[in-house]
Design a protein around this nucleic acid. Sequence first.
DNA 1: CATCATCGCTGACAAAAGTCAATGTGCCTG
DNA 2: CAGGCACATTGACTTTTGTCAGCGATGATG
Lengths: 326, 326
Amino acid sequence: MPIRSNDQIIHKAAWLYYTHGLRQDEVAQRLEISRASIAMYLRRAREMGIVTITTSSELFSDDVLARELEDATGLTTAWIVPEDRQAMDPAAEMPVVAASVFLELINKGDRIGVAWGRTVYHIADVMPFADLRGVTVVQLCGNLGAPYSYRPDQCTTEIARRLNAEGINLYAPLVLSSERLADELRAEPVIREQLATISDCQLALYSVGGIEEDSHLVKCGALSAEEMHAMGDKGAAGVIAGQLIDRDGQWMDCAHNRRCMSADLASIRAIRKRMLVVQEDNKFESLIAALKGGFASHLIVTASMARRVLDRWSKEGLDKNSSGKT
Amino acid sequence: MPIRSNDQIIHKAAWLYYTHGLRQDEVAQRLEISRASIAMYLRRAREMGIVTITTSSELFSDDVLARELEDATGLTTAWIVPEDRQAMDPAAEMPVVAASVFLELINKGDRIGVAWGRTVYHIADVMPFADLRGVTVVQLCGNLGAPYSYRPDQCTTEIARRLNAEGINLYAPLVLSSERLADELRAEPVIREQLATISDCQLALYSVGGIEEDSHLVKCGALSAEEMHAMGDKGAAGVIAGQLIDRDGQWMDCAHNRRCMSADLASIRAIRKRMLVVQEDNKFESLIAALKGGFASHLIVTASMARRVLDRWSKEGLDKNSSGKT
DNA sequence: CATCATCGCTGACAAAAGTCAATGTGCCTG
DNA sequence: CAGGCACATTGACTTTTGTCAGCGATGATG
């Protein structure tokens, strides 16, 4: 096979171009053929593996993991909080990372939706101070009547205070005692308007709640442990802004959700930058549900969670990046 | 800002561009920064070794002359740097070839011995970046006290840095003023241990020094020009890792060698892949000595040197492969 | 021996990447 | 807190690279 002689010139072109950094026209001149041919040779050299271009894997393993997670799930950006031996407690580190990422995602004049939960509260707690006048922080879900350690309005208010932004609270309970009352309240102009503006947000911040007995919905009395358990049997997988979602991330048509004063899930999905922060590894199934439901464009998780998500995605053949070329 | 936010965005840009094959403007759009910045990030990614572009060095080994040289001398592999009209300056080309070959010879977890000299220094200077964690680069010979342009520790350190490997320097002078002191120093546990590990290397990189007046040993003051000349009369033919060898490549029992802190020649010979790079054509006799002494399993030379070696080998009837080929 | 198909190569043009001065932006210092 | 410094970022421009129709050589076929 006379392929050999062909290969030789391809090798040579690749060597001069990639290793020596000559330009294509210089290579062409030296090899005394047209530059167009050089361009073709170089493409073949790449295709044939005579030259290989690799992005370092071990050195930036967390970055690579993040990129893979983005590719698989279609996230805009993923941040991986490492779990090295020498690193700090990852769960403790995450709110810090989240806060700084959050800050960078804010643009002048943005409207920002903030939900509620332990994670969000911790993020608020370590949020740096900034001067973001013109930014508005709105509360994504209603308040808890009873005194509770992490109150939705506290999250909103604290973040707004730190950013020197305007905070707008939702003056309604998270859960009402009847569907009728919830409907009527939702119809109130002041409430309705506020809920209607949520889809205008450019950025949202929330975590996903679990459906275990230690869920906030149970702890704050919105649901009993038995009710929550029953919901789990009916397919509930997580909680977004106080509302139960099923394994596919869809709103569940249940009594609790109908009684819940919170942002319409469609409105939340309409927000361009949806920042989801998951600290606890046992929220894995809830995270999966939230991802499937499209509740995250920007995700912050631990490395092990990221790996589990990737694993699950590949097992279910959900990888959106079947087309990615090489 | 998040830790390593800079690296993060560079890595992401590199990932999208090189792994996904997006165009720069597409990457820019996705990351919401200007394309000019992307171009800059990508350059940095290449410089920092986040992406590595390697070309196979097959080009230089795929040569009739190289095969003949291997057959004659018993080398494992020879690489011939051509001296064509169209080729670049062969002397300038050689370090590049050497670096590329060197990289291909490294395996995960290897321990690599590196000696010192102008050639090795130049190789280090053009060594591509790579991600070879777990690889250890050890210094084969002691350091030069006086400030000198090519310092042994620099060679080791620079190569280790480029490979992202661990570099281990030998903290001892190359030449001591008395044999007694040299002996005592060699007996020091820290030194002794380090010298003892040299035979555990899987790969060594060095050149062979000449015994002319422009030899490094003379230039750095270890030997006077007269002394060197006298050693030549006594049969010295070259320098390996700072030590004089005779025309058969054997260690010379001389004052200089006894005062020299360097790897035992037997240890060097024990290394499986001994990569010898000879740039200067006037080192011919030294090269012959090194080959006879078994200091090369992998050789990189110019075509004319290769021919001269073949010529000498056939004249002396040393051809190890009298039965084999045509 | 004409014809056709194939393939590598090239010129010319379109697309993409590189470059650089000007501009922002934060950050430190006096 | 102004001023200045260092450096990241960008828009506009230049250079380099990718592409593809068309050309010519080669070789197989009727």
